[in-house]
Amino acid sequence: MPLPFSFEPFRPDWVLLVLMYWSLAVPHRLNIGTAWIVGLLIDLASGSPLGVNSLTYSICIFVTASNFQKIRNFSLWQQSLLIGLFLTLYHLMQFWLNHFLLGVYFSPHYLWPVLTGMLSWVWVFLLLRKYRRHFRIR
């Protein structure tokens, strides 16, 4: 999704949000291996150190898939808060790995996508649920 350069720090992690939705909706179809492969493709496409997105996606999807029955019972706003917690975990792991590998230092703007991801979760959830019901994906 193209954004102006000034909005780049606020870009939500669309791929992770979509992976989280499908791990909650159909956990028997989307697993940790799928998240690892998608993360590897993101690493290759973005030029980040190989395996950083793979590891962080896999851990986040493990947490969501292992608790999918509990998370499904929450309201959409409670799910949004939990997704924000998982996105915080993702960004802190990303920072830690990049700090270890590249010597990057922490800046608070790393966590802006958590807020925008929480706010966009409601729309991602409703849109993907509509498509899942329309195409009868079980």
Rank of each mutant, 00 (worst) to 15 (best):
Q69V: 11
F100S: 09
L101F: 12
F135G: 02
L102I: 06
F74C: 03
W96I: 12
F7D: 13
K130Y: 07
V18C: 12
L17W: 04
Y110H: 14
M93F: 14
S80Y: 01
Q94V: 13
V114N: 01
R136N: 13
I59G: 02
Q69W: 07
L82G: 03
V124G: 02
M1S: 11
I83T: 01
Y21H: 14
Y110A: 13
V15A: 01
H99Y: 10
R29T: 08
R129H: 11
I61Y: 02
S54G: 13
L87G: 03
S80I: 03
L119V: 15
E8H: 14
S23I: 12
L85F: 11
R136W: 13
N67V: 06
C60D: 00
I32C: 02
H134T: 10
S80M: 01
E8S: 14
P113Y: 04
S46D: 09
P49S: 02
G47W: 15
L89K: 04
L16R: 04
R29Q: 10
L102K: 06
R11Y: 04
L89Y: 03
S75T: 15
S54I: 07
R133N: 15
F125E: 11
S46N: 11
D13Y: 12
P108K: 12
L41R: 07
W36M: 13
R132T: 10
L19R: 00
L41N: 06
I59A: 13
C60L: 04
T88G: 07
T64V: 15
G51F: 02
L115M: 08
M20A: 01
L41P: 02
N53S: 11
G39W: 02
W14V: 02
S23V: 09
Y90G: 00
V122G: 01
P113A: 07
R136P: 04
N31Q: 12
G39E: 02
M20I: 09
F135H: 10
L128H: 10
T34I: 11
P49Q: 03
I59C: 05
Y131C: 05
A35C: 03
P108E: 12
K70N: 12
V63N: 14
W36S: 06
L30C: 08
R133H: 09
G117C: 06
Q79V: 11
F7Q: 14
Q94N: 10
V26R: 14
I83P: 00
G84W: 09
S75E: 09
F95Q: 12
L128R: 05
M93V: 12
L30H: 05
V38G: 06
W14T: 13
I59W: 11
W121Y: 10
D13F: 07
R129P: 00
Y131N: 09
F106A: 03
Y57P: 00
S120I: 14
